[in-house]
Nucleic acid binder design. Structure first.
Length: 267
DNA sequence: CTATTTGTTTATCC
DNA sequence: AGGATAAACAAATA
C-alpha cells in the first residue's frame, strides 16, 4: 500500500510521541519483519531511552532513540503505524509495540509481513539509512541524474524503471502511473526511447506528483481531486479525465499499470 | 477455488 | 559484469 506520501503519513503518526521515553517494547521476533535484526535483544536496549526524532527518505523511516539507537521501518505492502492511547485496545498483526510515557503506545502492524524492521547502535546514521538516495523533491535530484539513470536502464519499460528505488526513492505503483499519465508517456515505452522533450516533462511530473501527493496525503490521508488519475485507476471501466475514454489495465513486468492509450501517445 | 494486491529480494537468463 | 525478468515472500479480499 504505502508509497512516498503514505509513508510520510505513517511517520507523522509515530512522531506524535516524539520526546517521550520508552517504558516497554514488545516484539514478536519470530515474525518475518524482523529478519534484518542481528541483535534480538533490541527491545531491551530501547527501554528507558527517549524518542528523539524521526525522518523519512523515500519509503523508509528512521527513528532516533536515546544517545545512539536507530530504529528503521519499511512498510512493505501492508505495513502501517498506529498511535494508540487505549492500553486495552487489541490490534491484530501488531508485531512491534512501543509503550511510552503517559500511556502512549506506538504500533507497527503488518499482516502480510513484507515489511522490515531495522535496528542498530552507533554514532552517526547507520548504513541501512545513509545508503538511500536523496529525495526526488530535493535539489540533488536533477534532470541530468534522471537521464543518466534512464540511459543505464534503456531497455526496460519506463514504468519498471520508475519503480526502482535506487533511482526514484518513494515512487510506487500508483505514483508511477500518475507520473506517466501526466507526462503523456505510455508505461511500456522503453526508457532509452524517450525523447528529450518528454524527459523534461517526465522530470517535471515526478516533482509535481511527489509534492502534490505529500500535500494531499501526508497530513490526514485526504482524497486527491478528481483531475488526478488516482481516483479513476482502481475501478474496472474507469474513465480518463483527459479523454473521457476508458482507461486500460496492463501488466508490465508483473505490476498492473493503468493508462490512457489515446492520451499517453509517446512510446 | 482462482485471481489479485499501492513492495522488495533473489535467482536465472542473456 | 551488469541488465532484464520471473518467481518468491504471505495473507487478505473479490
Amino acid at each position: 500500500m504505502p508509497e512516498l506520501a503514505e509513508v510520510e503519513y505513517f511517520r507523522r503518526i509515530w512522531a506524535r510521541a516524539e520526546g517521550a521515553h520508552v517504558i516497554n517494547v514488545s516484539a514478536q521476533m519470530d515474525k518475518r519483519i524482523f529478519r534484518a535484526i542481528e541483535d534480538s535483544r533490541f527491545p531491551e536496549i530501547l527501554i528507558g531511552s527517549r524518542f528523539n526524532r524521526s525522518e523519512r527518505k523515500g519509503k523508509q523511516l528512521c527513528f532516533h532513540f536515546g544517545r545512539d539507537s536507530w530504529l528503521g521501518l519499511h512498510m512493505g505492502m501492508t505495513g502501517r503505524t498506529l498511535h494508540c492511547l487505549d492500553p486495552e485496545a487489541k490490534h491484530k498483526y501488531a508485531y512491534l509495540i512501543l509503550d511510552l510515557e503517559k500511556g502512549e503506545r506506538l504500533i507497527f502492524q503488518d499482516p502480510r509481513l513484507f515489511g522490515k524492521v531495522y535496528f542498530s547502535i552507533g554514532q552517526g546514521t547507520p548504513d541501512w539509512w545513509s545508503g538511500i538516495p536523496e529525495e526526488l523533491t530535493s535539489d540533488q535530484f536533477t534532470l541530468e541524474r534522471m537521464n543518466a539513470f534512464l540511459m543505464r536502464r534503456s531497455r526496460s519499460p519506463i514504468k519498471s524503471v520508475l519503480l526502482m528505488q535506487e533511482g526514484f526513492p518513494g515512487i510506487g505503483n500508483w505514483m508511477a502511473d500518475e507520473i506517466l499519465w501526466r507526462s503523456r508517456i505510455a508505461p511500456s515505452a522503453l526508457a532509452g526511447s524517450i525523447a528529450e522533450g518528454e524527459c523534461r516533462a517526465l522530470y517535471a511530473s515526478i516533482r509535481t506528483v511527489c509534492n502534490d501527493a505529500l500535500r494531499v496525503i501526508a497530513d490526514g490521508w485526504n482524497k486527491p481531486p478528481d483531475d488526478w488519475l488516482f481516483n479513476h485507476r482502481w475501478k474496472d471501466g474507469g474513465i480518463c479525465p483527459k479523454t473521457e475514454r476508458v482507461l486500460v489495465r496492463e501488466k508490465i513486468n508483473g505490476r498492473t499499470s493503468c493508462w490512457s492509450p489515446d492520451w499517453q501517445v509517446y512510446r
